[in-house]
Write a protein that binds this DNA or RNA. Structure first.
Lengths: 213, 213
DNA sequence: ATGCCAGTTTACCGATCGGTACAGAAGAGG
DNA sequence: CCTCTTCTGTACCGATCGGTAAACTGGCAT
């Protein structure tokens, strides 16, 4: 039976560009793992679902991730952390133009979360007992996001306390929009939330720095 | 095999642990079910966990909820809907003093979610594929909340479009605060979010109705 | 050609999953 | 006392869970 559908000759392409066939590196697998965890949550993402999504049998999965499901989730979190650090947090902290960095952050947010059609894996993990297994990393992710926004605001002339408060509001609003957009199946909601945040951030920057010297 | 040692009549203790007896009505069970679903999510809440939490064996659970886990979750949702409708949505729509109703809503929110130490079950359901099983009810819950807030604002003199926008922001911010408060284990965050919302709602009401005659 | 080796397949493990069957215990009413 | 109904404990079901073991594959350097 199995010999029929099982492709005997596997073209092992060293180039990992093609996502059509089974990916053969950890890096290529991670996005598929992430999507599976997003859809079903950590507990709900069974190995068979992962196997189906990735096209890899259990043996292959355990070859790449000897630690099993927990290692898979940990690696996904690492990749997410790296992405946000490189694309959002570092620019927020270092871009010479804080206002532009904040606008770029909102644009990246809209892209990453597909205008609200995709959820935040870290936020979803935070809501169940899955949190316990990754508590430090979940905490660090949100703290880094908030602090990066606050740093940009502060460099833009906003007072420290006000910057932290507005940063907290920003991250909170984004997470809330992911929840309500999913719940209401209303993609427009996410864009409206980001637009509100853009206005509010710009306003704070405008007040903070009276006139650029 | 087991016929030899199987005791035909196991005299179950009439009252061994007299302290907290198992609740014997659906209504009394629901809060325990809700808490179990909150902690583990729908998929993660196993019958054994539910059995442990409620102190009821499978036999009793299936006696009260013949439909199994899905019926349990459905009943929990019904109870939640009723609570919010009675304590928050109806007052928002009908209270002669909309400003007071909005303040009361925020206070009820703080109480219900234990200042951010408790999560929103409906929001958590919305984030995974569990959503599919309860899609209509999840959608209706958030829509009702948003529309009730908008109705209160409108009766307070806020323009229709502005009221809806602010209501959407309010519900979204509350949900986001539940996520980030859980993630950062920072209960203060929830209170700060509610305080921000109180200011913003009051401001909108203040603008909308120039001077009360 | 040979032997290594990353990668895969397949079968299997004990545990637990959600759910069912049913006998027995507990109360209520007579 | 007996009976009927309501509730509960327990054994059991097939399926699936996360995870392991080992045989096999095909490519590659020697």
């Amino acid at each position: 039976m199995g010999s029929l559908w099982a492709p005997p000759g596997r073209p092992s392409r060293p180039d990992g560009a093609g996502a059509l066939r089974a990916p053969q590196t950890r890096e290529a697998i991670l996005p598929l793992l992430a999507e599976t965890f997003r859809e079903h949550g950590y507990e709900g993402a069974s190995l068979s679902a992962i196997s189906r999504r990735t096209g890899l049998g259990k043996g292959s999965l355990y070859h790449f991730f000897p630690g099993g499901k927990e290692e898979m989730a940990a690696c996904v979190l690492t990749e997410i952390e790296a992405w946000f650090e490189a694309r959002m947090f570092r620019p927020l902290r270092e871009d010479p133009d804080p206002a532009a960095a904040l606008r770029a952050m909102l644009a990246e947010t809209d892209g990453y979360f597909r205008s609200g059609r995709r959820i935040c894996l870290v936020g979803a993990f935070a809501l169940s007992t899955t949190r316990d297994a990754f508590a430090r990393r979940i905490d660090a992710y949100f703290a880094a996001w908030r602090d990066a926004v606050a740093a940009a605001l502060a460099r833009g002339g906003v007072a420290e306390a006000r910057a932290l408060d507005l940063a907290e509001e920003t991250v909170t609003a984004i997470q809330g929009a992911l929840v309500t957009a999913s719940a209401l199946q209303d993609p427009g909601l996410f864009g409206r939330t980001l637009a509100r945040l853009a206005l509010r951030l710009a306003a704070a920057l405008g007040e903070g720095a009276g006139r650029p010297t």
